[in-house]
């Protein structure tokens, strides 16, 4: 059985598909969050070195992963939009940016919450924290550029170039920051956990990551739907939609 995937590359059919899929992902995300948080707070054992404060990593680590994944995915969609002139891919890229920025911000925030009891300071210039901060700047730059351009076609393409330049730069930035960090602080305060992480902890973290994925997909689908409606508001199918409602 061959499914015609290209059918869903048209905004109109994607709109209805996304409408059907959104509740599915939202519910999955909700269930996974509940299970994940339950494991994190009640099932996972207390760390004997870090006591209860360590539990923030159940949110911090998945959120930090997401922030990086989403930037890559965003740049990927933007690049597809630029290369093949497919409107939908660019819309998805635009829809990903705010979620990515939110995860980056959350990663920084939870990092600070964790840092206070661990390092005695809200903020340390740790290599990962600093790179995460720069990632947040990159997200903000992408959103600010798109917001400043009125013509959606130009906004899509300009954003794509910026995202791609960002992707090329991220490894260089990360490497530079790491170098700078070791140069200035001697041994870095490491975020890595003890090698034998309890299985329950790992499970909790994986479930939380999965929950973040589902949440991101649900949110991106919703936001893409909004962008589609906004951009296609003068087309026939949108007015039919309005008539039906």
């Amino acid at each position: 059985m061959a499914i015609n995937w290209f059918k869903y590359s048209s905004p109109a059919s994607f709109y209805s598909l996304a409408g059907k899929l959104t509740p599915l992902f939202s519910i999955t995300a909700f269930i996974l969050f509940v299970v994940g948080l339950y494991i994190s707070f009640f099932v996972a054992p207390t760390d004997f070195q870090q006591s209860e404060a360590y539990r923030i990593i159940f949110i911090h680590v998945p959120v930090a992963w997401m922030s990086m994944f989403l930037y890559l995915i965003m740049a990927g969609w933007a690049a597809i939009g630029l290369a093949f002139n497919t409107r939908l891919s660019s819309m998805i890229a635009t829809a990903i940016a705010p979620t990515g920025a939110m995860f980056t911000f959350l990663a920084l925030w939870t990092g600070a919450l964790w840092g206070k009891p661990m390092w005695g300071a809200w903020w340390v210039w740790d290599a990962r924290l600093t790179s995460e901060l720069i990632l947040l700047f990159l997200y903000i730059g992408f959103m600010a550029l798109q917001a400043a351009i009125d013509d959606p076609r130009r906004a899509d393409k300009a954003g794509a170039i910026l995202a791609l330049v960002g992707v090329v730069n991220i490894p260089i930035i990360y490497f530079s920051v790491k170098w700078w960090n070791t140069l200035h602080q001697g041994a870095t305060v490491s975020l890595t956990q003890s090698p034998k992480m309890a299985t329950t902890m790992l499970t909790g973290m994986l479930i939380m990551s999965l929950a973040c994925w589902m949440y991101s997909i649900a949110l991106v689908l919703m936001r893409t739907r909004t962008i589609i409606l906004e951009r296609e508001r003068h087309t026939v199918w949108v007015s039919e939609l309005q008539g039906a409602a």
Binding site: I134, F137, L138, I140, G141, A144, L145, A148, I149, A158, I161, L162, V165, G166, N169, I172, I173, F175, S176, V177, W179, W180
Partner: peptide, 25 residues
């Protein structure tokens, strides 16, 4: 990228300063 946009001067700093970081370091 910011050619002809309103507030282009401020926007350009938002875009390029993060990319300048390796050179600064």
């Amino acid at each position: 990228l910011t050619l002809g946009l309103r507030g282009g001067g401020v926007l350009v700093s938002l875009l390029v300063l993060p990319l300048y970081i390796p050179v600064l370091i």
